[in-house]
Design a binder for these strands. Sequence first.
DNA 1: ATTGTGGCCTGCCCGC
DNA 2: TGCGGGCAGGCCACAA
Length: 261
Amino acid sequence: MPELPEVEAYRQLAEEAALGRPITGVDADDDWYLKGGLAAGDVGAALVGQRFTAARRIGKLLLLDTQSGPVLGLRFGMTGRLVVDGRAGVDALLHASNDPLARFVRFAVHFADGGHLLMRDPRRLGGVELDPREARLGPDARTIGLAALRDALAGSAAPLKARIMDQQRVAGVGNLIADEALWRAGLLPERPAGSLDANELRRLHRHLRGTVDDLIGRGGSHTGDLIASRMPGGVCPKDGTPLTRSRVGGRTTWWCPRHQV
DNA sequence: ATTGTGGCCTGCCCGC
DNA sequence: TGCGGGCAGGCCACAA
């Protein structure tokens, strides 16, 4: 599913292939897919005649700036893909259908040259927004500083995993990255977020950023070292201990009961 | 304010 | 063989 690494790949695709091309039309027929009070026709009215000038990303939110219009915000939910001129941003997506590109198109932007940028999302968990409130998102997990991470966790009784997945505290951490980073850092997902000492905080910071960089480099959130073992019968790749499965913060969570404390 | 829960949506896979 | 149910999880509305 799209977590930060996938959305970063989408951002790069948009940056390489979608900037500077005059927009001549928009298909936004699915009301469910329009967020933030948008009505059918609003997106077209705002974008036709514009060009995208930059592709940015905060956490899992892709932001396409326009010349003199609003910022187009794209969220991909769990099964959303970005496709530009028929070229998909990522090859494989866990839990998403690999049906032909023509199916499940929820939103499309057409360019004057005949090409298009579109979102394909079988489960419709993503969405489209104009001028999304970027300030609502916390620091991006790829670049967050130690002090900012400390601030995000300080004083919280919520489970550590839930806290780092709170997009208003830290932007971009999804379920798989959370499990992978906590596993690498040797920290129990259920630990109260505010209970980390200075060493543990440093460890989490190092491994959170390291995990994000690794997964971007390897090409997706499914390429983590823990992920392959994240199934019934799976054992910890570090020490061979059978992994524990539970729910933390409402999410299925896998961890090693031996080295995560 | 903080923390937890349920529902949205659809495809897949398991067991009967 | 068909079918029901559980599951995947990002995000939001809502509850306590």
